Simulated scan of single mutants.
Amino acid sequence: MANTEAEEKPVMIVGIDDSDHSFYALEWTLDHFLASSAPNTPFKLIVVHSKPSPTSAIGFAGPGAADVYPFVDSDLKKIAARVVEKAKELCHSKSVRSG
């Protein structure tokens, strides 16, 4: 039976949002810890993005809030999809493959 713990790489987690600062941090991490040693990187990278709830994004309650909720939720899903796609493209451009 193989010792899988010895074979596992340390995990590096980078949290991102849709800001330029966030993507700069991801790019910096890729440049300094992952891309230079690809494909034999010493780390496993996990990129995390959290989509806020529509309730927190609306920030108010009252008449009309229920009408706005589906639109806000749809916009938040689109933003989250763009963030994830941009992160994938950045990783790909640095020759860091997803796994």
Rank of each mutant, 00 (worst) to 15 (best):
A2S: 11
A2D: 14
T4N: 14
K9R: 13
P10K: 09
M12S: 11
M12V: 14
D17C: 00
D18W: 11
S22G: 02
Y24S: 12
Y24I: 07
E27D: 13
W28R: 15
W28A: 10
W28P: 03
T29D: 06
L30W: 00
H32V: 02
F33P: 03
L34D: 01
A35F: 05
S36E: 11
S36P: 00
A38I: 01
P39V: 12
N40K: 11
F43Y: 14
L45S: 05
I46A: 06
V47G: 01
V48W: 09
S50L: 10
S50M: 10
K51L: 08
S56V: 05
S56N: 10
I58W: 05
G59Y: 08
G59L: 03
F60P: 00
A61C: 05
P63L: 15
P63G: 14
G64Y: 11
A65W: 03
P70H: 03
D73S: 08
S74R: 04
K77G: 03
I79Q: 04
A81E: 15
V83W: 00
V84E: 15
K88F: 02
K88R: 14
E89N: 07
E89A: 07
S93Y: 09
S93D: 13
K94T: 04
R97K: 10
S98Q: 11
G99E: 13
